[in-house]
Simulated scan of single mutants.
Amino acid sequence: MKYNGLLLTLPKEVKVFVGVFVLVLSIGFYTGLLFIQETDSNHPSGIQENYLGNEEDEEAEVMKFKKGEREMLTIVHTHILSMSLIFFLLGALVWLIQLPKRLKMFLTVEPFFSVIATFGGIYLMWSGILWMKYIVVFSGILMTLTFTASAILVLCQLCFKTAIHTAE
């Protein structure tokens, strides 16, 4: 079965549907990043403070308390499930665009490792392995980069390849 570039052969209505889906998915993804920025969790010390609290810091502007085990399990559980579904759907679209197989493989498999490293790392950091905050930052950045690259590639092929294809 030939699937490389299959997205380009779909009817215009399906392409519009896919494009709108990727745009809305991206809005949701980047809104989550805005939330991370609001909680100061976009750097290692902020991540640690967000999950382990800052009760000892008398100069803290906002008092934060260590999250309970039930809350941590809920955070990890919901994020792993939702992010895996997000990357599965976006990955399926990446497999339908025209790209080298190795690049597709990276863009579609790596995010799953990043999801486990990010949210598993958050749980391990909360459990006391404090150096995991660096893994969380690295894997979170990598996850964001692969999401961004995948979404841009799908949208570009939907928009620009269609115009080139119909012009010929």
Rank of each mutant, 00 (worst) to 15 (best):
I135F: 12
L90H: 11
V136K: 00
V109I: 10
F147R: 05
I135W: 09
L81H: 14
G140V: 02
I135L: 15
V109Y: 09
S139M: 09
L130H: 14
T78G: 15
I75A: 14
G128E: 10
L96K: 08
F113R: 00
E110T: 14
M125Q: 13
I122E: 14
F112I: 00
T146D: 03
R102G: 04
L107M: 09
P111S: 01
K104H: 04
V94M: 02
I97S: 04
V76N: 09
T108H: 09
L103Y: 12
V94Q: 03
Y123R: 06
M125I: 09
S139K: 11
F119G: 04
Q98E: 10
K101E: 11
I135R: 05
M105W: 12
I122N: 12
L145C: 11
F106S: 11
P111Q: 03
F138S: 11
L124H: 06
W126F: 03
G91T: 06
V94H: 02
E110A: 13
V115A: 01
V94P: 08
L142Q: 11
L81Q: 10
I129Q: 11
P111V: 00
G140D: 13
G121Q: 03
M132D: 02
W131N: 10
F106Y: 14
A92H: 04
T108I: 09
H79T: 01
G91C: 02
I141C: 10
V115R: 06
V109M: 10
S127V: 05
I122Q: 11
T118I: 07
T108C: 15
L124N: 10
L81P: 01
V137D: 07
T148P: 04
Y123I: 00
F147M: 05
L85D: 06
S82V: 05
M105D: 07
L103D: 13
S127L: 15
L93C: 02
S84H: 07
L85Q: 09
V115K: 02
A117C: 12
L96G: 05
T146N: 14
L96M: 15
L130D: 15
I116T: 03
L89E: 05
L89T: 10
S84V: 04
I75W: 08
S82W: 03
M125R: 12
G140E: 08
L99I: 04
A117E: 09
I135T: 14
M83N: 12
